[in-house]
Design a protein around this nucleic acid. Structure first.
Lengths: 327, 327
DNA sequence: GACAGTTTGGCAAACGTTTGCCAAGATCGT
DNA sequence: ACGATCTTGGCAAACGTTTGCCAAACTGTC
């Protein structure tokens, strides 16, 4: 209903100037007598005034918008991160702008420029990829938080898990279970997360007596983790050395590997134990055969926003490693 | 790099006035001599000018923002709609703001007001729920497109499938297969989509000779379709009349029903044929046992944006029913 | 009763645009 | 050579805010 109500509308109704209303709206109550304040507050109520974020942004040089630049929304894990971040931002009075880069650096750059033009308050980069605009922006000191993958150019605030430790935990699990032929499946173009998971896994296996070439490694090309798992599965199950335990660095890779296993008539987890890192809740429903390191994506949003707020206040925010569960 | 470049920067460098630059930026080439145009274009290039969307929005009363108000991002189908819409909007030069209402009317209202304050160009409502602000906004003639669920208050532009026909197609499938005891599982608080799917299914079964009480109906409470399916599954499989074919009005409901079936030791699709309406690509990987009406969510974005553009041009846009595939 | 200090509130500029209007200068027809 | 018309471009207002600064009008003090 309130169509065109601005400070001027309120000011006219309360019989004061625009500046007085503005100050009251912004909580500077000392700048007016109690009587005036009351009159203005009444007027605000009466006409249903709400501050115009655009005018505010123009004047102050920053909007209430926060950009989330994500690599791929079709990935349930990222969708959950997006959803929880959106909720946390709203809670804090901000509005989330969502950009899906499909993992392409040019698109990421286009978005970064567009978002700066929008005077966004901050950037949340989920699984960011290296790109010119990113290093530029990161160097300029813009408020940003990296999620899942660390800043590909330099470092910066990070929210995620201890990927290396997660990989090691899976190695321990395989070893404790008495498995003899462990394997790991990962994307060829690894992010920092993938790499850390794999190297943590390998390092722990070495510590527990495996020789390096006794560990089967299979990577897959492309951006689709489903396809990566499926392709790698072909090589793993087709080779001479059949693994009896496989670490998949993401849920989707595990889905792909499992499909291949099914096609080959293998029993999961009977013939081969499958463990993934992600552990989205959907697994319980559609992939009960899958054991996972569960990453608490649903609380990422709160951590991300807490981090942003620290940065806005000028305080330090290095990294926040969240606890995972091996369920 | 270009930090604070505005029309004024360009104007100063080209030795013309701000207005001239503005007009040229907006393509009004006839308002200046070719020489001037060239000079201005050079200056724009040199300083790396990009129009400030905030200033523009303030002046023109509308931003380049389009609000997507979705019920639940954790649902892969909606995530895909969000992703494809985002891509189509970017293509057309707009920026998507994402709001997740978790199906709650108050939150939806909060968002609608916030988005109007942002002077968004249009609204995309995915699975909208009835709420005061929605009827208000819808009555005010704001540009909006309803997706998946029709406008709960009145009608408006719609993008979706012919839900009733989809339900009927499943009924035909069951009949043709010779199934004798069909069932349907749906959420108690049905959206227009759910209702149409169910009624299309029932109507066709009646046409093909079933009496109304021979058809098993099971609904479930709550917002989680997974849980709805799981709960309904308990009743369906626990009852005396075991169905031999079940229509689940969404993928997630089917996941829930299937889990229950597994727990009861039933073979899907051997003992009972399961068909869902949604058919997200993930099914091929994690639910090969599920037959689906496949809704082309990946092309929703393009249709939605095309619809918005029609509306912006003042042309009519009633509804767009997209073809589904029964795969 | 004069002076300083404090309240209270308004004026006006600024943020980056867009656009109606006006004014020179150029072009043309007669 | 003179008015009519067109071209080219600038001035200034406006969109809704915020905020530095100034000016009344109080309050209190000696």
């Amino acid at each position: 209903m309130p169509e065109d109500v601005s400070l001027a509308t309120v000011a006219a109704r309360a019989g004061v100037s625009v500046s007085t209303v503005s100050r009251i709206v912004n909580g500077e109550m000392r700048r007016a007598s109690p009587a005036t304040v009351a009159r203005v507050l009444d007027a605000i109520e009466a006409v249903g005034y709400r501050p115009n974020p655009v005018g505010r942004a123009l004047k102050s040089g920053q909007s209430q918008l926060v950009a989330m630049i994500a690599a791929n929304l079709d990935n349930p894990a990222m969708a959950t991160i997006a959803s929880s971040t959106e909720a946390a931002l709203r809670e804090a009075g901000y509005v989330m702008v969502l950009c899906d880069t499909h993992d392409r650096p040019e698109l990421q750059d286009e978005y970064l420029y567009a978002m700066r033009a929008q005077m966004v308050r901050g950037y949340v980069l989920v699984a960011a990829v290296a790109s010119p605009a990113l290093s530029e922006l990161s160097a300029s000191g813009a408020p940003m938080v990296f999620v899942t993958r660390r800043n590909p150019s330099g470092n910066g605030p990070f929210v995620g898990i201890d990927d290396s430790a997660a990989g090691a935990a899976v190695a321990d699990h395989f070893a404790d279970l008495g498995r003899r032929a462990p394997a790991v499946v990962f994307p060829r173009l690894g992010s920092s997360a993938s790499r850390d998971r794999v190297s943590g896994f390998l390092a722990r296996l070495r510590e527990r007596g495996w020789s390096d070439d006794a560990i089967i490694r299979a990577d897959g090309e492309g951006r689709s983790h489903l396809q990566i798992g499926y392709d790698a599965g072909a090589r793993i199950f087709g080779g001479r050395d059949r693994p009896d335990a496989i670490l998949c660095v993401s849920d989707q890779i595990a889905y792909g590997v499992n499909r291949r296993a099914l096609e080959r008539g293998l029993k999961i987890p009977g013939d081969c134990e499958l463990v993934s890192i992600d552990g989205t809740p959907l697994n319980q429903w559609v992939a009960p055969w899958l054991k996972s390191i569960e990453i608490p994506y649903a609380i990422y949003g709160a951590e991300i926003v807490a981090g942003l707020q620290l940065i806005w206040r000028g305080e330090a925010f290095g990294e926040r490693l969240l606890p995972y569960k091996f369920g």
